[in-house]
Design a protein around this nucleic acid. Structure first.
Lengths: 142, 142
DNA sequence: TTTTTTTGTTAGTTAGAACTAACTAATTAT
DNA sequence: ATAATTAGTTAGTTCTAACTAACAAAAAAA
């Protein structure tokens, strides 16, 4: 049984991965490197981080991050604001363009949902969602 | 309903992504760049491709691929063999080390299976696999 | 047989992104 | 008030990995 679960997961992972690939084509991400995309996703997950936080989470030295951030500002994906509390620190925000780029996961998941919706009957869909959530909840995924 | 599917998929994607991350830590992939990992995965998917095929699939120019392949040989992940049919062409193979690196997806899927197995009852597991396969088969994922 | 095409390599260039060292400005501690 | 720490930048280096141009060797076409 465990083997069958694994086979299913393997195939399902591939489906998700394909969906992400398609989503990447839809968004105009072409002029961003994978490093830059990774920065944008990390900034999105953290809440307007400063440079120190960001470099800590990315596991990189601050000067390295400074330079990439500079480039992302030039590209219009992010902007900086000075902190009121500490005038040395600046917070990094996504611009609307930057946020759009992060929607590619969303596109992928939408695409997947469409697949599932058309493959399963209403009852099956309900059961699928229930099982999915049971797995997720017992493993505390937000 | 479609919304609930999407929410489930979003969370499930994150779970898979976490599992892949953990698997990455387990394998000693640390001295390989993400480009190099991508090459190894592509070589694994194709069947002992030659350089022309590989560069076509990767969407890169041949000289670029030549150089990365050289480095992967130095690192002991791949080796080349000359074709019998055409002495100009060489086929690229993964070494045992190269194959091990590709097992990280396998680790991730194993890890996921464990999660699912312990979250669901025997009946639920069976139903989950059935639904998974129904989705996958109606979308022709190998 | 000679020419053209194809496979892959070598050489040289460029851009991205990491690093360290050294710095300024702001804040905190003494 | 002065010294030490912290946030972020600037300058300069290195490595990876992409590119084009030019090539040799083998195969296919003329």
């Amino acid at each position: 049984m465990n083997d069958q679960i694994k086979i299913g997961i393997t195939r399902f992972s591939r489906l998700i991965s394909n969906a992400e690939g398609k989503a990447k084509d839809l968004c105009d991400v072409k002029d961003l490197t994978s490093t830059q995309l990774n920065y944008l996703e990390t900034i999105n997950e953290l809440d307007n981080p400063n440079l120190t936080e960001l470099s800590a989470v990315l596991g990189l030295k601050k000067p390295s991050v400074t330079v990439v951030i500079e480039r992302l500002i030039t590209k219009g994906c992010i902007y900086k604001t000075q902190s009121d509390a500490d005038r040395r620190t600046t917070h990094i925000h996504l611009t609307e363009v930057g946020k759009q780029i992060n929607q590619r996961h969303d596109f992928a998941h939408e695409y997947m949902s469409g697949f599932i919706a058309k493959s399963l009957s209403a009852n099956e869909q309900q059961e699928f969602v229930r099982l999915l959530n049971k797995v997720l909840d017992s493993n505390k995924v937000k």
